[in-house]
Computed example of a mutant assay.
Amino acid sequence: MRYFISTKESKRNENGLIPVSVIFRDSRKEFAVSTGIMAKYPLSGVLFAQNEPNSKAKTKRLVRIIDGIDKFLLEHEGMEYERLKEGLRTLITGREPKSKQTLVDCIRKYAAEKKESTKQTYLRAAIMVERFDSKATFTSVDKAWLDRFVRCMGDGASVNYKALILQKVRSVFNWGLDNGLTSNYPFRRYKIKTEKTPIDNISVEQLRAIRDCQLDEYKAVYRDFFMLTFYLCGINPADLLTLKDENLQNGRIRYRRKKTGKPYDIPVPPEAMEIIRRYKGKDWLLFPLDTNASYRHYYRHWREGLKQIGTREVVKRAHGPGRPSARYQPIVDNLTVYTARYTFASIGAELEIPRETIALCLGHSWADVTSHYIAYNTKRIDDAVRKIIDYVNGDKA
């Protein structure tokens, strides 16, 4: 697409000023966009006449517009004509078309393209934005808007939760830029604040206490699944509960992580296989989804069960004849499903297993981990898993 600057005498208004416009041509199609700059004298290229009022300021503004056009055309080469036209109008005028969808609409549209687990986070962001400013558009959002939005989320939301919501809004802006829906990007110099949180791991002694504590049949299932998560390299609950029989072959579990879509290959040590056989499912590798509508439904029960398992009876006292009562001491203040994952990594670090090997076990990417060394990487994972489990089993009675 070609363009040039136009100042037509025929457009001179009653005050004697000519609007400065950009004319775009693509094959036989042509459209004009006003820059909002008015000139007393016709332009020569992009330079205003020396006797033009505020000539330097007008020239500087026009040059910025042209730089923006060049960058936009370069980044959106091959884009469909109407979308390119709309994007250029927005870039030059700074105004979204009246028919433009709201930011909330755009977040929901973007969320629809994501996997279910990721989609829910974007939909939460859409709800937060709608509560704050349901009429917000790509153009109306600036740094001041973002600051007000953060304050609106209130003190009840953690710093990292606010950061998560802002990151989702930022992703939608990046999507809007890539697709020519906006040229406004308020995150360019906006720092999203986060804070470090304590790693939710437990000690080897606490892990052994959980593994060995006496529980009724109902709670024992939640504890056993917790330990299975640990034995399987801290596997994500969404992945664990949706495994099929075909994912388990020749003593290994092979699947694609729901979070990343990448293939994953981990060993199934005897400790894990014993639990899998105990809780074998009919339609799934494990039984929960045979009777639960989704893994999320079971996960909520699992999460609550683990909170209860985090305490155990340590002393019994009698308060009067025949009236025994129990005093409880927590093993873990807040035991969660993800504690198994963090603890696996923590014990690996304690045993001085290389960080890149721990990353492989957890399914994270690492700079020197490539498909050319799959066999080598698999052995690294297998050796690490066995070393970690043997360490945990070391003091077992």
Rank of each mutant, 00 (worst) to 15 (best):
K191V: 09
R189M: 11
Y185A: 11
S171C: 14
S183T: 10
N174K: 08
K168V: 09
K168Q: 08
E195A: 13
V172L: 01
V172Q: 01
T194R: 15
N179L: 01
S171T: 12
R189C: 09
R189A: 11
R189H: 12
I192N: 05
S171R: 14
Q167Y: 07
N184G: 10
G176R: 00
K191Y: 07
R189Y: 09
R170T: 05
D178Y: 06
F187I: 11
Y190K: 14
N184H: 12
T194A: 07
K193I: 10
V169L: 02
R189T: 11
V172H: 01
D178W: 04
I192M: 05
V172P: 03
N174G: 07
R170N: 02
R170F: 00
T194Y: 12
T182G: 03
W175G: 09
W175K: 10
K193T: 08
G176L: 04
D178E: 15
K193G: 06
Q167P: 06
K196I: 14
F173I: 08
Y190H: 13
T182C: 04
F187C: 11
F187T: 11
K168R: 11
R188T: 10
N174S: 09
Q167E: 12
T194C: 07
V169C: 02
F173M: 07
R188A: 14
V169M: 00
T182Y: 01
T182W: 03
F187D: 10
G180Q: 01
L177K: 03
K168S: 07
L177Q: 04
G176Y: 02
L177V: 04
R189L: 12
P186H: 03
P186F: 01
S183N: 11
Y185C: 11
Y185V: 12
L181R: 06
T194N: 08
I192H: 04
T182R: 01
V172W: 02
L177A: 01
G176I: 03
K191S: 10
N184T: 12
N179H: 08
Q167F: 06
T182P: 01
L181V: 05
R170G: 03
Y190C: 14
S171Q: 14
G180E: 00
G180F: 02
S183W: 06
N179C: 05
L181Q: 06
S171A: 15
F173T: 09
Y190R: 15
V169Q: 02
V169H: 00
N179S: 08
F173H: 00
T182S: 02
N184M: 10
S183H: 12
Y185F: 10
I192V: 09
V169E: 00
K193N: 09
N179E: 06
N179Y: 05
L177C: 02
T182L: 00
E195V: 11
E195C: 10
Y190N: 12
V169S: 05
S171I: 09
Q167G: 11
W175L: 05
G176S: 00
Y190A: 13
R189K: 14
R170V: 02
N184D: 09
T182Q: 04
I192C: 06
W175F: 12
T194W: 13
Q167L: 08
Y185D: 13
P186K: 06
